[in-house]
Each structure stands twice: as structure tokens, then as C-alpha cells.
């Protein structure tokens, strides 16, 4: 039986279709979850995709983080279920308290949409298939992608090996310490601003580097089964 990975759709989500496609490319079954669901249908992991949930009202990700589906996601994550938040999904995981810090307006005030190279810097549930230090190319497309946290939190993230992805160039959005993605202390919840789900096939993206996140978690789930 293949692993089942949930993909959440909120009103305003854009990248759920590509996220589900990435899950299928990796060899898992994609299970659609709706923002009003309170039952995760027994999925083994969850992807919180990008977009503009609830129109980014209040703050990016703020309303989605308090939606019905996120209650069981937070509970399951605290028990060790792998969760990946991409772009708006990363913002949602920060607002839900699963990841520290926050994402704020890009320094240059411009929405950035281009390919970018990232360094994989930590071995987590979503990056176990990568060699630490590998560079991957994936699209970045966000207006509020600047990761911020207080100095103590940044030191802790770096000290505990929880900076999972760093921009391989000075962060174009002004993210502190060039941080593109981070993880929870147990390495099972990961959030990043760039979009691995758009880079799973050279036909439709810059390459297939992003597929590694989805095959990584699948390997982890299969090994645990």
C-alpha cells in the first residue's frame, strides 16, 4: 500500500494541484483535504501548499492557521507526523506556531518571481534524500517571503541544525541570514518560501530538483511502516 499524503486547499490556495502532482510523481497517493475538514482521513503526512489563503487578509497565513483543518494538523504534527509548508504554507505553519519566526514584506517591496538556487543544509524528514550541501534550483514567487525572527531564535535555529534551506546568493527578499526554509526541533515539520512542487519535471519547471523533498518523506514513511 502506498503512503497517503494530504494536500490542503484553503479558499485562495493556488498550488494544491501542483503539490498533489508532486506527491503522485514521488509515488504516493495524494489525498485532498479541505479547510473545513476536521478529519485528516488517516494520511501519513500533509503538504500545506502556496497561494493567498483567505486573500492574505489580516496577515499572510493568519486566518488559515486558525481554520478548522489546522487543529488536527497541529496535533498530528506534535505527535511526529511530517508536514511541509510551501510559501503561503510556510507562513501558515509559522502563524500556527509549528515553526518559529515570521514572514514579512520583501525588503524591496517587489513581488519576486524567478528561479533560485538553494543550499540544502539539514537532514530532515523532507530532505533525507539529499546530501547536505547539495544545491537545488526551484522557483521563488512571493511578495512576503522575508524570514524574520529575533537574534536568539536565529542562533538557536542555526545551532540546532534547523536551517534546512539557505539561498545560495544574498536573499533577494532580505530574509535574515539568507534563510529560505527551517524545520521543527524533531525535523519533521519543514517550511520554505521557494516552490519545490513546481520543479519536479524538466518539461514544466526548471528541473526536477524539487521532487527530492517528496521522495524523501516517502522514503521516511516507508521505512517507518
Amino acid at each position: 500500500m502506498s503512503a497517503r499524503i494530504g494536500v490542503i486547499t484553503f479558499p485562495g490556495t493556488l498550488d494544491d494541484v501542483d503539490a498533489a502532482r508532486a506527491v503522485r510523481y514521488a509515488g504516493a497517493e495524494a489525498v485532498s483535504l479541505w479547510h473545513r475538514d476536521t478529519d485528516l482521513q488517516g494520511v501519513d503526512a500533509v503538504v500545506v501548499p502556496g497561494g493567498f489563503s483567505y486573500g492574505d487578509y489580516l496577515r499572510a497565513g493568519a486566518i488559515a492557521a486558525r481554520s478548522p483543518v489546522m487543529g488536527p494538523v497541529v496535533d498530528a504534527a506534535r505527535r511526529g507526523m511530517p508536514v511541509l509548508g510551501i510559501c503561503n504554507g510556510f507562513q501558515i505553519l509559522c502563524e500556527a506556531g509549528l515553526l518559529p519566526g515570521a514572514l514579512v514584506r520583501n525588503t524591496g517591496l517587489r513581488f519576486i518571481c524567478r528561479e533560485i538556487r538553494l543550499r540544502v543544509e539539514a537532514d530532515t524528514a523532507w530532505t533525507s534524500g539529499f546530501e547536505v550541501g547539495t544545491a537545488i534550483t526551484v522557483p521563488l514567487k512571493s511578495g512576503e517571503g522575508r524570514f524574520v525572527a529575533d537574534g536568539e531564535t536565529l542562533d538557536r535555529l542555526e545551532g540546532e541544525g534547523r536551517v534546512v534551506f539557505r539561498y545560495a546568493e544574498p536573499a533577494p527578499n532580505g530574509a535574515l541570514r539568507d534563510i529560505a526554509g527551517i524545520s521543527s526541533a524533531d525535523g519533521r515539520v519543514v517550511g520554505l518560501m521557494p516552490h519545490p512542487e513546481h520543479a519536479i519535471d524538466p518539461l514544466t519547471g526548471p528541473g526536477a530538483d524539487g521532487l527530492g523533498l517528496f521522495t524523501s518523506v516517502l522514503g521516511r514513511l516507508t521505512a517507518a511502516a
Partner: peptide, 8 residues
């Protein structure tokens, strides 16, 4: 818990 994000 809602109107402001104490992180920022």
C-alpha cells in the same frame, strides 16, 4: 493571539 503577531 489574532490581531497581532507577537513575533513581528
Amino acid at each position: 493571539s489574532l490581531l497581532a503577531n507577537p513575533v513581528m
